[in-house]
């Protein structure tokens, strides 16, 4: 009987070395695509680069000097914990009535959003919500700009996953027409700050205002990526 013996490969490179080299190269390529959020074919990978609708990309150039999808998403997850707290979510409801309290119950008095987000008829936000907090537990919290988002851009937080909310906030057509520089500024808005001046009987957001601004800025400056 003829003995079959395995033929040795005599190509230009040894098989083992070729496989190892291929593995290293593909690893580097995958890591690059992973951190960039997209693979070479343009398909979405682990994270999504945010598309900004009508926003002009040049408006964001100076904001995003150090893009890093992993750090950006890490920061957003902290941002998300604040945005989903009652102090933020209660005025970003899924329906057309604001929410109240730490349990996010629907606002009493049948309050509705109205076209501008300021309520309707005799039940407008500023009829009860004064420029400052009313004294006493659970009395109406105050801010000069107290209102919901308007009915033509509801900016819903309630029920949104982290990914959905990140994409919404970074979408120029869904975020009140803000580019990234304007989003950074938005953290200084008095209505945003009022979440930490919640009045008696309400739990504050899960981190300080300063810590929130820090992670908000980090999320946006590192690319404003959305988690999967």
């Amino acid at each position: 009987m003829k003995k079959h013996s395995a033929k040795k490969f005599h190509g230009p490179f040894p098989l083992k070395a070729t496989l190892v080299a291929l593995a290293i190269v593909s690893g580097i390529v995958m890591l690059a695509a992973f951190r960039d959020g997209n693979d070479k074919s343009g398909n979405s990978n682990m994270y999504d680069t945010i598309r900004d609708g009508n926003e002009k990309p040049e408006n964001n150039k100076h904001v995003e000097a150090n893009k890093d999808s992993i750090e950006s998403v890490k920061a957003f997850m902290k941002v998300y914990s604040v945005l989903m707290s009652p102090r933020c979510m209660n005025c970003h409801p899924a329906g057309d009535a604001p929410l109240q309290g730490d349990d996010n119950h629907v606002h009493t008095m049948n309050v509705v959003r109205g076209p501008n987000g300021t309520g309707m008829y005799a039940v407008k936000c500023s009829n009860c919500h004064q420029p400052t907090n009313a004294p006493g537990p659970h009395a109406p919290p105050g801010n000069p700009k107290w209102q919901l988002p308007p009915s033509d851009m509801k900016m819903v937080f309630q029920g949104k996953t982290a990914r959905q909310l990140a994409l919404q906030i970074m979408n120029y057509n869904q975020n009140g027409n803000k580019n990234k520089a304007q989003l950074l500024e938005h953290a200084k808005d008095t209505l945003v700050k009022s979440a930490w001046n919640m009045g008696e009987g309400r739990t504050p957001p899960p981190m300080s205002y300063t810590a929130f601004v820090s992670v908000w800025n980090e999320w946006i400056k590192k690319g404003g990526y959305a988690p999967k």
Partner: peptide
């Protein structure tokens, strides 16, 4: 006294404001 019942409603610049929580300075 905490803007929950509406008995104190007056008009301020035409809006139905709760006078029990409205500071006179406003």
């Amino acid at each position: 006294g905490v803007a929950q019942c509406g008995a104190c409603t007056i008009h301020m610049n035409g809006e139905a404001v709760r006078s029990c929580v409205t500071k006179v300075s406003r």
